[in-house]
Design a protein around this nucleic acid. Structure first.
Lengths: 235, 235
DNA sequence: GTCTATAACCGGATAGAC
DNA sequence: GTCTATCCGGTTATAGAC
């Protein structure tokens, strides 16, 4: 654990912190307005009233501004989810609510996300939501799904219980991937996908209770475990 | 259907065709040797003995050279697969053989593919293996899996039969995605993944025969059908 | 040490002459 | 079909100011 901010160690004085914040704000605004490709570092710097080189003092690359997006994105999401996580007991409704909210709150960044996913899809990059460097935000995000399960009336048992929050997070990433490319009016296709797939997912979770299913479930979990060590050099 | 080559309509004279071919050859060699990012258009042009501008006359962007890679990649694969497709009857062994061969033949391009997937993961791009523009090569690739099934002793029935070749192709893309990020010695992790996952996949295919499974299978297929129309503007 | 600015460099892409 | 000249934007080197 190194601790936070990829952003060059910078921003440790009153003025520095403010400058950094100003850059982030301008960047996010430009991202919403013009998308990722349509936003230039020169443009951000100009808006923020700093020189180009100075912007690079705070963020060592354009990509690194993405971390700022992840943070804002998560905060907006969890805030909007509280009512559902607090008030609803039915598993399917909880899951449905969290996923729909994720899409809704991300809407202003639709164009941006389209172009983002190109960089984010590459687990090489520290900017990938799957990378070590994003552990912090990712864990917060996985936690939402832990709450989805724990706060519901459906009890999950066996090996599945441990893995489920992370699996649901991955499932959410799949939804996002779809949304990113969804050009339908108001992203109605994505909402349809959410409805149909949560139905399936909840069924599968409940199927886990049937003893004859256990070997298949366990074998699948074992496979997923194998999928993990992408970054290690193990033989 | 527009027909082939994304490459600007160019290359229709004797000399033109040769120049184009020379560019492709130099590009692929450089891709193998230095990866995608490590290869510059200027470098390719120089090796091919043409000017930078001229290279752009034949390929309207660096990305468009990727089409050339897809083509070579597919040809090498199918050639290497013939023995298995002709000689083996067991479904699992056929599938295993085809997937292993895919990885083996792609090995010289491992570094290249790492960087490639960044661009290819974006279905926006005409370079994505999922895009309309790549229908031609993709169909050829899906066809390999049709042969895997048809030539095997296992009979597949129901709605699954129609979709299975395409599903297996998608599954192969998943394997490739894993391989691309696999840093283990000789990509042993990927081969392990292939072994374990084909086992699971073949089991699932055979499970399809059990009547009680049908509703779940059909519901899943319906969901997958919903997943398709990513590019349309449907309500 | 923390911050800021100016002037390059590099490589993908385009314009336009021949 | 081919070239040269140029643009554009991410990134870096470097030098100074607080």
């Amino acid at each position: 654990m190194k601790s936070m901010s990829q952003t060059t160690g910078a921003g440790r004085t009153r003025k520095g912190g403010e400058t950094k914040e100003r850059i982030v704000d301008c960047a996010l605004r430009k991202f919403r307005q013009y998308g990722y490709d349509g936003t230039t570092m020169r443009g951000i710097a100009e808006d923020a009233g700093v020189s180009l080189g100075n912007a690079y003092y705070y963020f060592k690359s354009k990509d690194h501004l993405i971390t700022a997006y992840y943070r804002e994105s998560h905060e907006t999401h969890i805030e909007a989810c509280e009512p559902i996580l607090d008030g609803e007991k039915n598993l399917k409704k909880r899951l449905l609510g969290v996923l729909r909210t994720r899409v809704e709150t991300s809407m202003p960044y639709h164009r941006f996300s389209m172009q983002l996913f190109k960089t984010a899809a590459d687990p090489e990059s520290p900017l990938s939501p799957f990378s070590d460097e994003q552990t912090e935000v990712r864990d917060l995000s996985v936690d939402i799904f832990r709450r989805v399960i724990d706060g519901s009336s459906t009890k999950v048992s066996g090996k599945l219980a441990t893995e489920l929050p992370m699996l649901l997070w991955t499932y959410q990433m799949g939804i996002i991937l779809y949304w990113v490319h969804d050009r339908s009016q108001g992203c109605s296709q994505t909402y349809k996908l959410i409805d149909h797939s949560t139905d399936l997912v909840v069924r599968l979770i409940q199927l886990n209770r049937l003893p004859p299913m256990r070997p298949l479930v366990n074998r699948t979990l074992k496979l997923l475990a194998d999928l993990k060590p992408l970054r290690t050099n193990g033989a």
